[in-house]
Design a protein around this nucleic acid. Structure first.
Length: 376
RNA sequence: GUGAUUGUAGCUCAGUUGGCAGAGCACUGGAUUGUGGUUCCAGGGGUCGCGGGUUCAAGCCCCGUCUUUCACC
């Protein structure tokens, strides 16, 4: 993996760059659609590639390990071959899922013993095991196994958890260096900064992660319910410590406004379930504001979904028709809304990049921000 | 025609000994941040078939009437 900076904004920390992987280039800042179970829910691979122009998607170690399992993914030739996505893939390590999904779990210095949310079966994740699984999935970017602390989180727990995350990182790096991709392409390992909402823990973690000189670095443990200003404060703090010449990935963020703020603080990569999950539930992010397509006010609105949108669904379908699909619980409704939202998120990142390169990012940001939170 | 039976929110139905009219679904809003195609929160909505009567008080008891379904002539 390679990363080079293309341009920097003079009035903020925003920067434009380019990541090169064996599966192609990623122009940053970038939004990465989430494809937890090997699919970006309700959207065809063809539409993600050709309509939203996404350059990288996510997969999830926890979910893919449980289903379909490595005994399917390995003979399939890895996730790229399995789902037909030939551009870059990033796999989340499962640390977040062990925290958010698993009913009963036991966390020790060694690793985590958890129960499957599907059938209750017991499994064990250690840093070594997670590295092996991510090798078998074959993602271009593998995330280190961490513990995502909840919010709120008391200081003692956050400090103890951080120690575990750091020691797990060392074991991830060791295993990563001892193994290689079974399919022949290169894989990168990104460590994750934790430390909850405590400045000293975040600084300590960011310095530790920076010292590993990884090919890219991630900020985790945010967007878990804390106020936005705390999220921004922690992001800014950490970005000032993480190396400038490596991509920075803010995990799980966020709303369009969160992403613009993150970009201005020097974050290069984002992922979030919001465009797809909220899309499936009728919430649309458009160029003029946020729409709840289920609202009665759209019942007889025969205007296009988003007259400025670049996705084919934006002009193909009307708001009234999309509302009807949701009211009738037709499968096409969530499909249209998901594709539209992904198109909008990708447009947002691409347009931010253009303005960073042209030197007009700050002006554009102050123009676009009110529209991103406005409700139609 | 006779004997039973039914009628309460848009729908399906609870409603105790007579004591503030309820639920689920639907509808109207809101939430959702490294995804279990969800889930959660809030709100609006009633001439208790209709007309009388008893009672401090009736969805509930009494009388009449209409209505639903069933059985028998």
């Amino acid at each position: 993996m390679d990363f080079k900076l293309i341009g920097e904004d003079s009035k903020s920390k925003a920067r434009a760059g380019e990541i090169t992987t064996d599966h192609g280039k990623i122009e940053t800042p970038i939004f990465m659609p989430v494809g937890t179970a090997g699919t970006v829910k309700a959207v065809h691979i063809r539409d993600i590639k050709e309509d939203t122009n996404a350059q990288i998607i996510l997969g999830n170690t926890y979910h893919l390990y449980l289903r379909p399992g490595l005994d399917v993914l390995e003979p399939a030739g890895g996730l790229h071959k399995f789902n037909g996505w030939d551009r870059p893939i990033l796999t989340d390590s499962g640390g977040y899922q062990v925290y958010s999904l698993s009913g009963t779990r036991k966390l020790t210095e060694e690793g985590v013993i958890f129960q499957s949310h599907i059938d209750g079966s017991r499994h064990s994740f250690t840093p070594e095991r997670v590295m092996d699984i991510e090798r078998t999935i074959g993602a271009d970017i593998m995330m280190a196994f961490d513990e995502c602390t909840p919010y709120p989180c008391d200081y003692d727990y956050a400090a103890k958890s951080l120690g575990i995350t750091h020691s797990w990182l060392d074991r991830c790096i060791k295993r990563f260096n001892e193994t290689e991709c079974p399919y022949g392409h290169k894989q990168a390992l990104f460590p994750i900064v934790q430390g909850s909402t405590f400045r000293d823990l975040r600084v300590k973690s960011a310095e530790y992660i920076a010292s590993k000189n990884a090919e890219g670095n991630a900020i985790g443990g945010l967007s878990v319910g804390e106020p936005h200003d705390i999220m921004y404060e922690m992001t800014e703090l950490v970005c000032n410590i993480l190396p400038k010449d490596k991509p920075r990935y803010l995990m799980g963020v966020g709303t369009p406004a969160n992403i613009i703020e993150g970009i201005s603080q020097g974050v290069d990569m984002f992922d979030c379930v919001m465009p797809t999950r909220n899309g499936r539930n009728g919430m649309l992010f458009t160029s003029e504001g946020i729409i709840n397509i289920k609202n009665k006010k759209w019942e007889k609105d025969f205007s296009p979904i988003d007259e400025n949108g670049l996705s084919f669904v934006d002009s193909q379908y009307t708001r009234a028709y999309l509302r009807h699909l949701f009211a009738a619980r037709e499968t096409l409704g969530p499909m249209i809304a998901s594709l539209h939202n992904l198109g909008f998120y990708l447009w947002l990142a691409k347009t931010a990049r253009k303005h960073i390169i042209e030197g007009t990012f700050t002006e554009w940001k102050s123009m676009i921000l009110p529209k991103l939170t406005h409700r139609l």
